Deep mutational scan, measured.
Amino acid sequence: EDGINLEEIREFAKNFKIRRLSLGLTQTQVGQALTATEGPAYSQSAICRFEKLDITPKSAQKLKPVLEKWLNEAELRNQEGQQNLMEFVG
């Protein structure tokens, strides 16, 4: 629908959760960090719904690039050390 690749979103949601957990981050931490930079659309409950795919494809499509960018950045910081990650997450 609307050129939205559901399979891709499903895959990303699954990987997002795995990668988030491997960084040792909670949904709350991700939500707080993103709410600070991106606004309330990225709250803990939004992250939770995204991971469960309990949102419309359109919403998922909107969240995905922001979550992807944030997660990549978080992983980079983590490679530089846990301290850097925690500063990034705030």
Rank of each mutant, 00 (worst) to 15 (best):
Q82S: 11
Q61M: 14
Q83A: 14
A33K: 05
A74C: 06
A13S: 05
L53C: 12
Q44P: 15
N15S: 14
K62V: 12
K69E: 08
Q79E: 11
L76A: 14
A36D: 10
E73H: 09
K17T: 12
N84W: 04
P40R: 11
K14I: 10
G39L: 01
G24I: 00
P65A: 06
N84C: 14
V89E: 13
L25E: 02
T56D: 15
N72E: 12
T35I: 10
N78A: 15
K17L: 01
T37I: 07
A41S: 12
S59C: 12
S22M: 10
L23K: 00
A13D: 00
E73C: 02
G90I: 01
T56K: 08
M86S: 15
R10F: 11
I4D: 06
L6M: 14
P65G: 08
Q83T: 13
L21Y: 03
A33G: 04
F88G: 12
L23P: 03
I47E: 01
M86N: 13
Q83F: 05
L34T: 01
E1Q: 01
E87L: 01
L6R: 06
E87I: 00
N84S: 15
R10V: 11
Q82W: 07
M86R: 13
L63Q: 15
L63I: 06
C48P: 01
G31F: 08
I9E: 00
Q79R: 12
L25S: 03
K52I: 04
G81I: 05
L23S: 05
L67N: 02
A41C: 08
K58T: 14
D54R: 06
A13H: 00
S45N: 12
A13T: 03
V89P: 07
W70K: 07
L23Y: 03
I9C: 05
W70V: 04
Q32E: 14
N15Q: 13
I9K: 01
I47H: 02
C48D: 15
R49G: 07
L67V: 01
K52P: 03
Q83L: 08
F50R: 03
L21K: 15
K64Q: 09
E75Q: 04
P65W: 05
L67W: 01
E1C: 00
R20P: 00
K64A: 08
N84F: 06
L71E: 07
Q83N: 15
Q27F: 04
L76P: 07
Q82A: 10
L21V: 08
Y42H: 07
G81V: 05
P65D: 06
E51Y: 03
F16Y: 05
E75R: 00
A33Y: 12
T28H: 15
K17R: 14
A36V: 07
R20M: 01
A13R: 00
T28I: 05
Q32D: 14
A74Q: 06
E80V: 12
L25G: 05
G31M: 02
K64E: 04
Q82V: 11
I55T: 08
F88P: 13
Q44V: 14
K69W: 02
K62I: 15
E73Y: 02
K64Y: 14
T28M: 12
L76G: 09
G90A: 12
S45A: 12
E51H: 02
E1N: 11
K62S: 13
A13F: 04
E51S: 01
V66D: 06
R20H: 01
N15T: 09
R77G: 07
A74I: 01
E80Q: 13
F12H: 01
K69N: 10
N5E: 11
A36N: 09
L71K: 02
L71F: 03
V89F: 11
L67M: 01
L71D: 08
A60R: 03
N84A: 15
I18Y: 06
P57L: 14
V66H: 03
E80F: 11
I4C: 05
L21P: 01
F12G: 00
N84R: 14
G39C: 02
L67A: 05
L85Q: 15
E38S: 08
E38C: 11
E11K: 13
L85F: 08
E8S: 05
E1H: 01
G24Y: 03
S22D: 13
L34Y: 00
S45I: 01
G3D: 15
P40Y: 04
P57V: 07
V66M: 06
R10A: 12
F16L: 05
G24V: 02
I47N: 01
Q44E: 15
P65V: 11
G31L: 02
L21E: 15
E75D: 07
L76I: 14
E8Q: 10
C48L: 07
A41L: 10
P65M: 10
R10D: 06
L23T: 01
N72D: 14
A60Q: 00
R19Y: 00
L85D: 15
L63E: 00
A46N: 13
Q27T: 15
A46H: 09
T56Q: 07
V30H: 04
Y42C: 06
R20T: 01
E38N: 09
G81T: 00
K14R: 10
E51L: 00
M86Q: 12
P57F: 09
A36S: 08
N84Q: 13
P40F: 07
L6W: 15
P57E: 15
E73D: 08
I47L: 05
R10Q: 09
E8L: 04
L53S: 02
L85Y: 04
E75T: 05
E80M: 10
E11F: 06
G81Y: 06
L85I: 13
Q61E: 14
N84K: 15
G31W: 07
A36E: 11
Q32H: 12
L67T: 05
R49M: 06
G39A: 03
G24N: 06
F12L: 03
Q32C: 10
Q44D: 07
R10S: 06
R77P: 05
Q27Y: 08
I55D: 09
A60D: 01
K69T: 07
N15E: 09
L25H: 03
F50K: 02
K17Q: 10
D54K: 09
I9M: 05
Y42G: 02
F12A: 03
C48V: 10
K62W: 05
Q82R: 15
G39V: 02
E8M: 01
F88H: 13
I9G: 02
S45R: 11
N15A: 10
L53R: 04
Q83M: 10
Q82E: 13
A60H: 06
A13W: 03
I55E: 03
Q79I: 13
S43G: 13
T56Y: 11
R77M: 11
I18H: 10
C48K: 15
I18L: 14
S59D: 14
N84D: 12
V66L: 05
Q27L: 15
Q44F: 02
S59P: 01
V66G: 04
S45Q: 14
G24L: 01
K69P: 05
I47Q: 04
L23I: 03
I9A: 06
Q32T: 10
K58F: 14
E11I: 07
W70G: 05
Y42R: 05
I4G: 01
P65F: 08
R10W: 06
N15P: 03
N5T: 12
S43L: 00
L23G: 03
R19S: 03
L21G: 05
L23R: 08
E68N: 13
N5I: 14
N84T: 09
L85M: 15
S59G: 11
L67Y: 09
K52R: 13
N72T: 13
I18F: 10
E8D: 09
E87D: 13
R10T: 09
G31D: 07
D2I: 13
L63R: 04
F16Q: 03
S59L: 14
L34A: 01
T35Q: 11
P40W: 06
W70L: 05
N84H: 12
L34K: 00
E38F: 09
P65Q: 11
T26Y: 07
E7I: 02
N5R: 07
E68D: 12
K52C: 09
